[in-house]
Simulated scan of single mutants.
Amino acid sequence: MSTEPQSIPTEDRTLDAGALKALAHPLRVRIYNLLGERGPQTASTLAALIGETSGATSYHLRALASHDLIHEVVGRGTGRERWWELHRGSVNVPGPDETSTPAARAASQVVMSEFFRLRNDSLLDYLNRSTADQPEEWRDLGLVLTSRLDMTPEQMAEVRDQLKAVLDGAVERFRDQEGKPGTRRVSMRTEIFDLADGPDRHLTIEEES
C-alpha cells in the first residue's frame, strides 16, 4: 500500500492540553488507532473501514493534523485524495492525575478509555480468529502471556525496563519495512502492573495462541 519510506525524523512526544482535547473524541481515537494499525490512509479508506462518510473522516483528519497529531504523506496522493499517517516516535498521553485542569482531565479519560477499549477489541479479534483465516507462516506466532508473582518496586522497575528495551530495539531494527513483501502489521504489547490486594501468590497462568 505504501511507497518507499521517506526520511522522517523520529520524535517522542507528550501531548499538551490542546492536542489532548483535539484527540478526545471516540472517532478521532479510532482514526488515530487505525493509522497505527494499518499505516497511511485517506479519508475515503478510513470511511470504508469505520462506516462513516468521507466528509466526516476528512473533518476529523484535519482536526488531528491541526494539532500535529498526524501529517500528510509527502509525495503521495492528490489535492482530492490526501494520504495521512502518524508521526514516528512514541506518544505519551498524560493520565487524569497528570493534568492541571478539569477539561484536560476529562479529555485524558476519554482518550485513555477509548484507546484501551480498541486495544482490547483488537486482542479479542486476534484470539477469536480462525486458524483457517491465517496464512500458514503466521500461525502459532502470537503469545498472550500472564504471570503473577510477588515483586519489590525495584524488581518491577527492572523487568519493566527490560521489556521496554526489547520493544524499543525491535522498533529501531524493523522501522522501515512497511510495504515490503512478506511483512504484515504486527501489534507488540507488554503489560506489567501491581494487583492491589490481589489474593494470588506465585501463580503463573500462560495462554498461547
Rank of each mutant, 00 (worst) to 15 (best):
L195R: 14
D168Y: 04
D194P: 13
R175F: 06
K164D: 03
K180G: 05
H202I: 14
G198V: 06
K164V: 02
R160L: 00
F174S: 02
L163M: 05
K164Q: 08
P199T: 05
V171Q: 03
T190G: 01
P181G: 03
G198D: 10
G179A: 02
K164G: 04
L195Q: 14
Q177P: 03
L195M: 12
Q155P: 03
G169N: 05
I192L: 01
I192F: 00
A165D: 02
E158G: 06
F174C: 05
D168R: 05
V186D: 00
G179S: 05
P153S: 05
V171Y: 03
D161L: 03
T152Q: 09
Q155M: 09
R160W: 01
P153Q: 08
L195C: 12
D194E: 15
T204Q: 14
R160A: 00
Q155H: 09
S187L: 14
G182D: 07
R175T: 08
G169H: 04
A170N: 07
L203D: 14
T183V: 11
D194R: 15
F193M: 12
V159I: 11
D197V: 06
V186R: 00
I192M: 01
S187V: 15
L203V: 13
P199W: 07
E206Y: 13
A165Q: 04
L195S: 11
R175D: 06
V166T: 06
V171N: 02
G179N: 02
S187F: 10
M188Y: 08
R185S: 15
T183W: 09
A196N: 13
Q177E: 12
M188S: 06
L195T: 14
S187A: 14
E172C: 10
A165T: 04
A165E: 04
P199E: 06
I192K: 00
D197C: 08
T204F: 14
T183C: 10
P153A: 06
V166R: 00
P199V: 05
H202C: 14
T152C: 08
E191D: 12
P181M: 03
G182C: 08
A165P: 02
